[in-house]
């Protein structure tokens, strides 16, 4: 049997993927991916567009049929862990009067929205919105907030479920560079506070280099897996991104930021 690549052998694996393959419409999108994702760390799934990153995330979420095994650490919980999910694109109905508060409440409140939001739920929602810095949008219609605010609201909804694992799918795809930097800083703050196992899907090398502790390089199959510092080598990047790599290396003057080797595990 193929040896599973481990990202860090000293920590617990929150998620173990064993020979995971996903086939959609006769095309193999994910091809025999085996790896472990460390508990309490921020792991980036990196690769160009259309190479199966989102598909792998959807397989972990259980949204797609796959072959192989995806196992969650039973020390985290005896059942399937609570997963907070920040999707890539939320195609909002701009004319809908549904407010940010409504959107956050419907995922958690048992009482139907038309009977009102319970005060305790409202207080919890406002607390999380304050944590991500967008309390002011609570009463605004979801279709009227900016892309940056929407990303924070989506992060808030993921955090409201008190997740054990946080999955983010290209969270900064719809915001500008300054918005991206602010969101990534917020994500790192939240991660450091809560020590959540976080998986971040991105095609943005600078986000990976600046914020991820570990990285999985994906191009339909697993190209490399390990600590960011060790994995972001010219050879690996050429294998994952090929034509885009030279550009990145030129822009960053052949240097890559330090990885987060001093991060403490929550285990």
């Amino acid at each position: 049997m193929k040896l599973l690549p481990r990202i860090k052998s000293m920590t617990n694996a929150a998620i173990t993927l064993e020979h995971v393959s996903v086939e959609l419409g006769g095309h193999k999108i994910i091809d025999d991916v085996s790896c472990q994702i460390d508990s309490g760390y921020l792991t980036a799934i990196m690769g160009p567009n259309g190479t199966g990153k989102t598909t792998l995330l959807h397989a972990i979420l259980g949204l797609l049929p796959f072959t192989g095994n995806i196992r969650f650490n039973r020390q985290l919980s005896s059942r399937r862990p609570r997963i907070g999910y920040v999707p890539q694109n939320v195609d909002l109905d701009r004319g809908s009067p549904v407010t940010v508060g409504d959107f956050l409440a419907v995922g958690f409140a048992k009482r139907p929205l038309w009977m009102g939001i319970h005060r305790q739920i409202e207080a919890e929602i406002k607390k999380v919105l304050e944590r991500v810095g967008v309390l002011v949008v609570y009463n605004l219609p979801l279709g009227k907030i900016s892309g940056g605010e929407l990303q924070r609201v989506l992060l808030a909804q993921a955090l409201l479920g008190k997740p054990e694992i946080l999955l983010l799918d290209e969270p900064t795809a719809a915001v500008d560079i300054s918005g991206e930097a602010l969101f990534c800083e917020l994500l790192e703050e939240v991660h450091n506070d809560l020590k959540l196992t976080t998986i971040l899907v991105t095609h943005d090398l600078s986000v990976v280099a600046a914020h991820a502790h570990n990285v999985l390089c994906l191009n339909h199959s697993l190209i490399c897996a390990g600590p960011t510092k060790d994995m972001l080598t010219k050879e690996n990047l050429m294998r994952v991104f090929s034509p885009h790599t030279e550009l990145f290396l030129q822009q960053h003057n052949h240097t890559l930021p330090d990885n987060k080797g001093n991060h403490e595990s929550s285990d």
Binding site: L61, G62, Y85, V90, V98, V106, G107, A109, P112, L113
Partner: peptide, 18 residues
């Protein structure tokens, strides 16, 4: 079902993750 259907109409995979 009102809350669930509202979340499904906004984003089906997100509803699934809940």
């Amino acid at each position: 079902g009102y809350n669930k259907l509202l979340l499904i109409s906004l984003h089906s995979p997100l509803a699934h993750s809940r």
